[in-house]
């Protein structure tokens, strides 16, 4: 695939009826989309299906996309909503909960559910689990889904300065939790 074709060029071509050009967009973002969905679903098959569905829905709504903004932050909202709906629906159907919980970006019930096993990683994983949803989301977006600050600012609807500030406090809290773990050992 020609890496020189920008998102804007590919999307403009799609809007002019050239569906094949959407492949450039998909190739560029498919791995991030898959891992993002995986952090919601904790299941490879569902993550694959939901990320594909998100690409389809994004294609259908391309005319609403502002090409001056990063594609992935717009796509993130589509995929996140799909994952939340899927997770809540799944919970209802299998009667795991008596109430509908809002799904969040998370790392699974056990450290080895999504990650390769590694003792130190398991400790960081436990620390991330202890954070509140907002702190965890911003760290996962940056460190586990390669968001740029501009993409995060657009996806979360906040200025870049606030992204840096939220990251600072989230990481600070994570460090504190990890230090407490060391104290417990």
């Amino acid at each position: 695939m020609d890496a020189k074709i920008s998102d804007k060029e590919a999307i403009d071509a799609c809007l002019n009826g050239n569906k094949e050009m959407y492949r450039y967009i998909m190739e560029r973002y498919k791995e991030r989309a898959y891992y993002l969905a995986l952090m919601f679903t904790k299941n490879s098959e569902d993550a694959l299906d939901l990320s594909q569905e998100a690409f389809y829905r994004a294609y259908r709504s391309l005319k609403d996309y502002d090409t001056s903004r990063p594609f992935y932050s717009w796509f993130y909202r589509i995929l996140k909503n799909l994952c939340i709906n899927f997770t809540n629906r799944h919970k209802r159907l299998v009667r795991m909960d008596d109430y509908v919980q809002t799904a969040t970006l998370d790392l699974g019930e056990k450290p080895d559910e999504l990650f390769e096993q590694n003792e130190r990683s398991a400790i960081v994983w436990r620390g991330l689990k202890k954070l509140d949803d907002k702190d965890r989301e911003i760290i996962l977006m940056k460190d586990f889904n390669d968001f740029s600050y501009q993409e995060m600012a657009d996806a979360l609807g906040i200025p870049i300065g606030s992204v840096m500030s939220r990251l600072y406090y989230a990481r600070k809290r994570l460090l504190k939790i990890l230090q407490n773990f060391k104290g417990d050992l």
Partner: peptide, 25 residues
Amino acid sequence: TSEMKFKPFPEMFWDDYWENVYNRI
């Protein structure tokens, strides 16, 4: 955090990815 690696998936994982998206479109 950068040393935490997602579990790898098989090489063939992406084989039908585009076809599936294209078919949905």
